[in-house]
C-alpha cells in the first residue's frame, strides 16, 4: 500500500537527507527502520505523511500520490496515517481524552472542533482507544501529569482514534525506560498483527529491533543498505551500518553508540 520510487530529498540548507529510495511497505509485516542518526529515517517518515515534500521521486499511499497531491488531499490522506512521536507531542494542557480526540479533528467540521462539541460517537471511539492502550482510568487527567510511558500510550491511542491504515512511530521508545518501552512496542506489534494496520517504526535499540521487527530496512546516508528479515541482521551488518561511515573520518568509533552492540 506504500510505494516509494526513487525518492530524493535535499533540505534548504543543502543537506541531502534521502538518495534514491525505492521501497514497498504493506500491513503484513512489522517494519522497522534503523540507521545512524542523520541517515534520513525521520525525513522518510515525514515524507510518508506529507509533512515534508520530497525534492524528487514518487510516494504513493493507498493509490494517492502524496508527493504531488494538493494540500487538501494531503490533509485527507493524513487522516489515514497515525503518527507516534519520540517526545510524545501530546498537547500538555489538555486531558488524555481531549488529546485522543485530536485524532478525530480531521473527521469533523471545523466549527464543531472550535467549540469543542464532539459527537458521542467520537467520544466513544476516543475512549475505546484509551481502553485499548490501558489508559481509560486516566482519561480526565491532564497530559502533562502523566509519566512518559503513559503519555506515549495516549499518543498511540490518538493515532488509533484516526482508525488509520498506517501508523508511523518515530523513535517511539527512545525517551522511555525498559518497562514502558516493552509496553509501547508490545502495543504497536499487537495493533499491526490484530488490526491489520501497517506499522513503520524508527528504532535505535537493536535488541528491540530483533524482538519486534519482522522486516528491517536500514538507511545509511540517505540510502537503503539493508532490507530483510531481522535474522539476516548479523553483527557484521550492524557494525558496517553504525561504524563504517565514521571509520572514514575518525579511527575510533563514537563511544556513545557502543551500548547498541553489547548484545549483538
Amino acid at each position: 500500500m506504500i510505494q516509494l520510487e526513487n525518492v530524493n530529498h535535499t533540505y534548504a540548507n543543502g543537506t541531502q537527507a534521502l538518495r534514491g529510495i525505492s521501497l514497498e511497505i504493506g500491513a503484513e509485516a512489522f517494519t522497522v527502520l534503523i540507521g545512524p542518526s542523520g541517515a534520513g529515517k525521520s525525513t522518510l517518515m515525514r515524507i510518508l505523511n506529507g509533512l515534508v515534500r520530497p525534492t524528487t521521486g514518487k510516494v504513493t499511499i493507498d493509490k494517492l500520490e502524496i508527493s504531488r497531491a494538493k494540500n487538501v488531499q494531503v490533509l485527507a490522506a493524513r487522516r489515514k496515517i497515525g503518527m507516534v512521536f519520540q517526545q510524545f507531542n501530546l498537547v500538555k494542557r489538555l486531558t488524555a481524552l481531549e488529546n485522543v480526540l485530536i485524532g478525530r479533528l480531521a473527521f469533523m467540521p471545523t466549527w464543531r472542533s472550535t467549540i469543542r462539541m464532539y459527537t458521542l460517537e467520537d467520544r466513544q471511539l476516543a475512549f475505546a482507544a484509551l481502553e485499548r492502550v490501558g489508559m481509560a482510568d486516566y482519561a480526565w487527567q491532564r497530559a502533562d501529569t502523566l509519566s512518559g510511558g503513559q503519555q506515549q500510550r495516549v499518543g498511540i491511542a490518538r493515532a488509533l482514534a484516526q482508525q488509520p491504515k498506517l501508523i508511523l512511530a518515530d523513535e517511539p521508545i527512545s525517551a522511555l525506560d525498559p518497562k514502558a518501552s516493552e509496553q509501547v512496542m508490545g502495543l504497536l506489534r499487537q495493533i499491526q498483527s490484530e488490526d491489520g494496520i501497517a506499522v513503520i517504526a524508527n528504532l535505535h535499540h537493536l535488541d528491540a529491533v530483533r524482538e519486534y521487527a519482522e522486516r528491517v530496512v536500514a538507511l545509511q546516508r540517505g540510502s537503503v543498505v539493508f532490507d530483510g528479515h531481522p535474522n539476516a541482521l548479523t553483527e557484521a551488518v550492524t557494525r558496517a551500518l553504525y561504524y563504517d561511515e565514521q571509520k572514514a573520518t575518525q579511527p575510533t568509533p563514537d563511544l556513545s553508540t557502543t551500548p547498541l552492540l553489547v548484545n549483538a
Binding site: 505523511n49 509533512l51 490533509l75 485527507a76 490522506a77 493524513r78 487522516r79 496515517i81 497515525g82 503518527m83 512521536f85 507531542n89 501530546l90 498537547v91 485530536i102 485524532g103 479533528l105 480531521a106 472542533s113 499518543g155 490518538r158 484516526q162
Partner: peptide, 8 residues
C-alpha cells in the same frame, strides 16, 4: 506537528 499529522 502532532496535530498537523492527524490531518487537522
Amino acid at each position: 506537528e502532532a496535530v498537523q499529522a492527524s490531518g487537522a
